[in-house]
Design a protein around this nucleic acid. Sequence first.
DNA 1: TCCAATTACTTAGCATGCTAACTATTATAT
DNA 2: ATATAATAGTTAGCATGCTAAGTAATTGGA
Lengths: 158, 158
Amino acid sequence: MSSTIPFHETLDLTLCGSMGRVHRLCRDAVTLAVEPLGLTQSRWTVMIHLFHLNQGCTQQELAHSLGIEMPSLTRTIKQLEQQQIIVREADAEDKRSKRLYFTEQGLNLLETLRVIIADVKQNLYADLTTNQLDTMAHGLVQMEKNARQCINHYSGDK
Amino acid sequence: MSSTIPFHETLDLTLCGSMGRVHRLCRDAVTLAVEPLGLTQSRWTVMIHLFHLNQGCTQQELAHSLGIEMPSLTRTIKQLEQQQIIVREADAEDKRSKRLYFTEQGLNLLETLRVIIADVKQNLYADLTTNQLDTMAHGLVQMEKNARQCINHYSGDK
DNA sequence: TCCAATTACTTAGCATGCTAACTATTATAT
DNA sequence: ATATAATAGTTAGCATGCTAAGTAATTGGA
């Protein structure tokens, strides 16, 4: 399909900018769709990841799953706790850790959320073939690896 | 290549999260590499886009090229102006518009910036084939289109 | 011609990512 | 056994995206 000049060559680093933009737009789309539930981007994202992990995971594990740093998560967790969607319980073994659980109410909200998201997801992925999506997913993983190496290189770490 | 379960299926909406993460990491990598130049992510990004457009473009045009909103750009422009990297000149025809130009100093900085970025880019795209990058670029464009439609749909516009 | 709508830009303030620095707990090494 | 390291979480404050609302200039219709 590339007998012509490869499309990405015209983009300089714009591939990267493109990802940021698409990311924002996808999250905006979902956030709009779930607006009636009173959830922001970071809040529904945390809920989905907590669903995919086991309930009872630590904040550390959740932050890792999300690919964000702890302080970013702390803020969102606090909001979800205030909305009584999740609860934090200190781990008996290791008193530093806190384990996260959905409340009854939170589980109900989660169900609704998942239904809506499944729908939005179909729209977002429309006209993209399975192979295309697969290539993108793999490419992103590779780029993530590259970027981390790059960062290590430039920050002069061991 | 997908006789097994397609990789992206395991990701739920994580493809979207992945993009956000890779976007942040790529920008971090470049920002680290250009650290000696005293530029933040938003500032070097604006410089690169201004380079690709014609100098003398309006803020409107630049914001569109960047895919960000005007207020986000205004802040960055102001910083670049304070660093004497670019200047804003009121358009003679339409006094509402301001046209953007690199200063002498800004042009020199731009050259250095471009050299460094070309290098980082190579590292970021390492081990990705041209076809892969192409597929990703096209996929992103399609997803951006989908997301915008989605947003229009859910915001109940005309 | 002149008032209303539109456009380019700005300002103010929010959302969500980050790093740096703090506390409390646990693990390690002498 | 105890002092030092590391780890989980928090707090404070920055960077950069956004929307809403304001100003000044332009356009367009009565």
